[in-house]
Design a protein around this nucleic acid. Structure first.
Length: 473
RNA sequence: GUGGCAUUGGUAUAAUGGUUAUUACUCCAGUUUGUGGCACUGGCAAUUCGGGUUCAAUUCCCGAAUGCCACCCCA
């Protein structure tokens, strides 16, 4: 026995090999970097996450909520490839953004093409719009999508290198109602999932609006330069808009007095944005006008928004309120920038893992509460227990019969003892267990056991569907 | 990408510079063979990896990997 253990340990130890090489990183520092197999082969790569069976149901619940809302608002499902030309994103999202400069998975394909794993889907759909001439179908073209995105970021909770987004895009119409509709789809999806959300919203105007504003903003920031944090001082040249959402206290004081972009919108864009807000008021969607909200991708124009979970508890607030569940906005310049016709468009995306995180926390709390009350939530489902070979053969037959009538039948046909199967039935928290033994197979009957009371009833196998309908509905 | 903290079975934990590393849950098998939620018995299963110090390291030191937190940024 002990020998066995030692051998096993040896095996386990041999499975990992780590080679360390010296490598210079961007800042010129020398660093030890592990190449080859870093850990054992059972671990995921950094920032990657397995979706485990226990979370699978919840994940699909989110999918279905998204599907239902998007469908109801008239969006059609569409997909684009995960692998795209790297230049598509570089041209649309913009050099100088972190997403492009630091976070893209770029590599050379076998024929030398520079390809990348998509960091988001908006640019892909803009490409699709041009590529398939979608300006020739009735506008707006409304699509929704769901899929993996990749960003080589440093992992944290709610931030992975591979993650899922649900999003909607609407091409071809420049109308405040389109903006409001997108916000509504995002908001109502969260609401359907039981998440109380609110929207932070702003308008960053047209490109000329922004240029004019930037001159003013930079002028102002320069005059207050000595009050700003070191980080922000650097950004005056590099990315002045970003100073607006700084979390440094000294910066916040300066920002409070800073000129606001809303005052620099031209008359038309200003009216447009007011209309968007009116639609949101009318739809009863809670929003906070946030003049400091600027988004990190270059293609955004006019309306921009982000969604957050509304938390009552002040202590929770500090922990979680900072993580956006999703964001989006208008991008009227994107299609033409990629070489297509002038096309107004807008869209949003929600981060599925972030939503999942919230739902799982909620479910955990509910579980705890239920345990305290020691309540059992029995599911409207059946468990089929079987004894002996004859019965287990017959079992598949019965499961299929019930399945066709939309009954869920849990089972474990590999188990032999009835006791073990009843234990499983108990854990699955089903309302009734069907018991099929040698005797029942011969008689053409089946036992129906009420798991709450323990009362059993013997019925004819042919009446099983009818009986199930009676007891479960 | 920068800084800080952490790393013991699947999960949650205890302990230790030295022969079989604690406990609970989960999982599997059983407690006289066709009845669950209780109890009992038995079983599977771990010191992240690499190097150093030492007669001896899971324990001390260094590095890596991974996770978490803050920043950067973002979904």
């Amino acid at each position: 026995m002990i020998k066995k253990k030692i051998e096993k340990n040896k095996k386990l130890k041999n499975k990992s090999e780590t080679k360390i090489i010296k490598k210079k990183n961007d800042s010129g520092k020398t660093k030890n970097v592990a190449t080859s197999a870093k850990q054992n082969i059972y671990s995921t790569l950094r920032g990657m996450k397995d979706l485990l069976p226990k979370s699978g149901k919840m994940f699909m619940d989110i999918f279905h909520a998204a599907e239902n809302v998007a469908d109801a608002y008239g969006f059609s499902y569409a997909e684009t490839p995960i692998l795209e030309q790297a230049s598509l994103f570089i041209r649309s999202i913009g050099k100088g953004t972190d997403v492009i400069d630091k976070e893209m998975y770029v590599f050379e394909d076998k024929d030398g093409t520079k390809v990348c794993l998509r960091p988001e889907a908006t640019a892909s759909f803009a490409r699709t719009y041009i590529n398939h001439g979608l300006q020739t179908v009735p506008q707006p073209v409304k699509v929704w999508y769901w899929g993996q995105m990749f960003r080589h970021d440093r992992p944290q909770q709610g931030r992975y290198r591979q993650f899922h987004q649900f999003g909607c895009e609407s091409f071809g119409v420049n109308n405040p109602v389109v903006d409001a509709e997108l916000v509504a789809v995002a908001y109502n999806t969260l609401k359907d999932l039981g998440i109380n959300a609110f929207v932070k919203i702003n308008s960053i105007g047209s490109i000329t609006d922004r240029e004019n504003y930037l001159v003013e903003l930079v002028g102002y920031l320069r005059s207050k330069r000595s009050y700003l944090s070191e980080e922000s001082k650097k950004k005056i040249v590099k990315n002045p808009l970003r100073i607006l959402d700084s979390k440094e206290e000294q910066d916040i004081e300066v920002i409070a007095e800073a000129p606001q972009i809303l005052d620099w919108l031209n008359e038309e864009n200003r009216k447009y944005f007011m209309k968007v807000l009116e639609y949101l008021d009318e739809a009863g969607i809670p929003y906070v006008l946030t003049p400091t909200l600027v988004r990190g991708l270059d293609y955004y124009t006019d309306t921009v928004f982000e969604l957050f979970e509304e938390v009552k508890d002040e202590t929770e607030k500090n922990e979680n309120s900072e993580i956006a569940l999703g964001g989006g906005g208008r991008y009227n310049g994107l299609v033409s920038q990629l070489g297509g016709p002038e096309t107004p468009a807008a869209g949003f995306a929600l981060g599925i893992e972030r939503i999942l995180n919230i739902l799982e926390k909620k479910a955990e709390e509910e579980m705890k509460q239920n345990q305290e009350k020691s309540n059992k939530h029995r599911v409207d489902a059946l468990f089929l227990a079987q004894l002996g070979e004859q019965a287990s053969k017959k079992a598949l037959n019965i499961i299929e019969k019930l399945r066709k009538n939309n009954f869920k039948v849990y089972h474990n046909l590999a188990k032999t003892s009835l006791k073990a199967q009843l234990e499983l039935a108990d854990k699955a928290e089903v309302k009734y267990t069907l018991i099929l033994g040698q005797k029942e197979v011969q008689d053409g009957t089946i036992i129906v056991r009420d798991m709450e009371s323990g009362i059993q009833e013997i019925i004819d196998q042919n009446k099983i569907v009818h009986h199930a309908q009676k007891i479960l509905n």
